[in-house]
């Protein structure tokens, strides 16, 4: 859904081009992660779970982008499926659903962050400040986006 929202364009052809570039970018990120895992991580003092996280996230990114790219290639060879995907991609109700879902997720994340901040404060100041920073970023992005959209719309 996030990839769909990021790669949206007025026509499906452009959407697919953007989506392909995005998926290729994710695959490159995954490869960089794996290179870091193979070269930098073994010499570091990172705990085992963080080392595992490097490998896991990198492999996840590569697999997810490979699946996405395979789907794009399949769509290009099947006109009927392409047409169906185009309709689904440009359907205004689908956009409204994605938009509402994103709003709900953003609000829930914000309020859960507030709760998490209050809970973790006595145990870890680093986690407290990380959550604080996340909330400040959220509020700033919200304000900037509101200003930008107020001019555009």
């Amino acid at each position: 859904m996030l990839i769909k929202l990021i790669s949206c364009a007025p026509d499906f052809e452009t959407t697919i081009k953007r989506r392909t570039r995005l998926l290729q970018g994710l695959a490159v990120l995954g490869v960089i992660g794996l290179v870091c895992y193979a070269t930098l991580v073994p010499n570091s003092s990172l705990p085992d779970f963080v080392q595992g996280l490097y490998a896991g996230v990198s492999c996840g990114l590569i697999i997810a982008s490979a699946i996405g790219l395979a789907r794009v290639a399949w769509l290009k060879k099947h006109p009927e499926a392409w047409k169906k995907a185009a309709i689904q991609n440009n359907d205004e109700r689908e956009w409204a659903v994605s938009s509402k879902a994103l709003q709900t997720a953003a609000l829930a994340t914000f309020f859960l962050s507030v709760a998490a901040m209050l809970i973790v404060a006595p145990f870890s100041l680093a986690a407290f400040w990380a959550l604080w920073g996340e909330m400040i970023c959220f509020a700033l992005i919200l304000l900037i986006a509101a200003q930008v959209y107020a001019r555009i719309l």
């Binding site: 309709i87 689904q88 440009n90 359907d91 205004e92 109700r93 689908e94 409204a96």
Partner: peptide
């Protein structure tokens, strides 16, 4: 009808049920 309007069948169902209000364009 969905094919003719280039929307999904679910959109037509929602429009008919009054659960979703069409944009001016649709």
């Amino acid at each position: 009808l969905a094919d003719a309007l280039m929307v999904t069948r679910q959109t037509v169902i929602s429009l008919e049920n009054g659960r979703y209000n069409a944009s001016l364009l649709l």
